[in-house]
């Protein structure tokens, strides 16, 4: 966790800042709320079950009350009748709180965008969203990825040292897409394009 981890040969000593310790504890116990609206909730349940096991990331304790939850996974279509309830549940959660918009419906209306007369076109019209997870419904791996992005956000929180620069970067987990080595820099990318173009040009007879 800390910058000095593993630097001591004999072990037994870990030095860190108080803030990093708090963030580390927070990101390892993100408790989501038991809250599902539609088919995405089935996928969320699968994520919580043994095969994908969201508990590996410390987010397996689905709380039945918003007052004990840190994370709201909005899993499913939000309609206008439900919107005020979603807003109220969000307001009842203690700070710091995070929201994952899971699936196409909560991200922007999804298949109900045009003809869904009673569907909210994105849950971000009701509550602030931290992470959008694409898919209809998303695979459990995608939801886990979204959870890891929330953990990245938590790890970068600086409540105690507000308005001071961060000393390390996010994201620090896997899933961060890196460019392949042949297009790493602009020169290499140009060279790569030129070579591909030459290869694809048919030879003159």
């Amino acid at each position: 966790m800390g910058l000095l981890e593993g630097r001591f040969e004999k072990g037994g000593v870990v030095i860190t800042t108080l803030e990093q310790a708090i963030n580390w504890a927070r990101q390892a116990s993100v408790w989501p709320m038991t809250f599902g609206l539609a088919c995405c909730a089935i996928e969320m349940m699968a994520t919580g079950a043994s095969r994908y096991d969201i508990d590996r990331f410390g987010a397996g304790a689905f709380r039945a009350t918003p007052r004990q939850a840190d994370l709201m996974i909005v899993a499913g279509t939000v309609n206008f009748k439900m919107a005020s309830r979603v807003r109220r549940l969000y307001n009842q959660m203690p700070d710091p709180k995070f929201v994952i918009a899971m699936g196409a419906c909560t991200s922007g209306g999804g298949p109900y965008y045009k003809y869904g007369y009673n569907v909210v076109k994105g849950v971000d019209l009701i509550v602030p969203v931290d992470v959008y997870v694409a898919g209809c419904p998303p695979r459990p791996e995608a939801l886990l990825e979204g959870l890891m992005r929330v953990q990245d956000k938590i790890r970068a929180m600086h409540d105690l040292t507000k308005r001071q620069p961060l000393d390390y970067l996010v994201p620090t987990r896997s899933g961060y897409v890196q460019l392949p080595p042949e297009v790493e820099t602009l020169q290499k990318a140009n060279e790569y394009c030129r070579r591909r173009k030459e290869l694809s040009t048919p030879a003159k007879v």
Binding site: F80, A83, Y117, K121, L125, I126
Partner: peptide, 21 residues
């Protein structure tokens, strides 16, 4: 709610309690 949505001449709501539709 206003109106009956499965009527063919139903007009979709543009706004519901401050949430744009």
């Amino acid at each position: 709610w206003e109106g009956h949505p499965l009527r063919k001449d139903y007009v979709f709501p543009l706004e519901y309690h401050g949430i744009r539709g």
